[in-house]
């Protein structure tokens, strides 16, 4: 008297290959290309110490005689630079590898920070409702309308006023992560709160409440897995935004210290030489930054469409 005949069991791998999301990936050239580009850039950043031909931070390898070497050529001293060298004789290619490391580190950490903060607050606001919700969402609204860069600049200004100068350099990267992360949480909170409010009305939540499951476990076990889809999308797009924000702050001169340059710092340095013809010092870091942001953005965009079946 059973009316389900179980279909032939499929392996986990076969299931993934057959899934709609993988199909959408397989048939989207944009998604494939951008994921490959992003993967190359990320791997290059992670393995920078092994890939980079020079150590851009060691004063021993820097020689002013190597300065301003154009791309794909040898300097007066016979050193070869694929992307050329800057005014201090630093290899632009190596600097980019190490620079993307800093950019990615700051970007990923900031997004993680924003995600944890935003998802928790969004869950609480959406689940509790009432005054808790009003207060959290009002703060999020205000936060959203105060742009990240502005908040980061303020935090920087304050940090400079409070911290002793010796510590400022060491703290800069943490201040950066904190500032960018703090300004992005509201996005997560809004989305998660919206989905949470939809989910908590659903009967599977009532079913759990009836048997006395504690609210915190309802949130974590039941609701959280159901609101993570959009979080992934915002996280991806947020990563691109965070990388851009970091570059902008470093470009404005308030980001990471020049001793540990990020892509934004390299662009700031390169800008000084753009008008005198040494275009490569700016061009290559800029292209790397744009490729990184664009490929992550494209991935996020694809993910949003793939997770939203109505758009297909």
């Amino acid at each position: 008297m059973t009316d389900i005949t179980p279909s032939a069991p499929k392996g986990r791998f076969a299931k993934i290959i057959d899934s709609d999301i993988f199909f959408s990936y397989r048939t989207s050239p944009v998604a494939i290309v951008s994921s490959i580009v992003a993967a190359i850039l990320v791997l290059a950043a992670i393995f920078a110490p092994w890939i980079a031909p020079y150590d851009p931070f060691s004063p021993r390898t820097l020689n002013l005689m190597n300065g301003f070497t154009p791309p794909m050529s040898e300097s007066m001293l016979g050193a070869f630079f694929i992307f050329g060298s800057d005014h201090q004789g630093r290899d632009v290619f190596s600097a980019i590898l190490y620079g993307s490391r800093v950019s990615l580190l700051v970007g990923v950490s900031a997004v993680m920070f924003a995600m944890i903060l935003g998802v928790s607050l969004g869950l609480i606001a959406g689940f509790r409702g009432g005054l808790t919700d009003t207060v959290i969402m009002r703060i999020a609204d205000i936060q959203l309308s105060f742009p990240s860069i502005l908040i980061a600049l303020l935090i920087f200004g304050i940090a400079r006023g409070i911290l002793p100068p010796a510590q400022q350099e060491n703290m800069a990267i943490f201040v950066l992560i904190f500032a960018i992360g703090l300004s992005d949480w509201a996005q997560f909170a809004r989305t998660v709160r919206g989905s949470t409010m939809v989910e908590r009305q659903k009967d599977y939540v009532s079913a759990a409440r009836i048997i006395g499951v504690k609210p915190i476990f309802i949130l974590i076990r039941h609701i959280l897995p159901n609101v993570l889809g959009p979080v992934l999308v915002i996280g991806t797009i947020g990563l691109a935004l965070a990388i851009i924000a970091e570059a902008t702050l470093s470009f404005l001169g308030v980001g990471v210290p020049p001793t540990r340059p990020s892509l934004g710092t390299l662009i700031r340095i390169g800008q000084q030489f753009l008008f005198s013809g040494e275009w490569w010092i700016l061009f290559f870091p800029a292209i790397t930054l744009v490729l990184l942001a664009l490929s992550v953005n494209l991935l996020g965009d694809w993910l949003r469409d793939a997770l939203n079946p109505r758009l297909r």
Partner: peptide
């Protein structure tokens, strides 16, 4: 538009200066 979102404002500015001013 996606390129627009991925290009930081300061790079757009620098690019425009380089092309139209320099």
């Amino acid at each position: 538009s996606l390129i627009g979102v991925s290009l930081p404002t300061f790079l757009i500015g620098i690019g425009l200066i380089y092309i139209f001013a320099v």
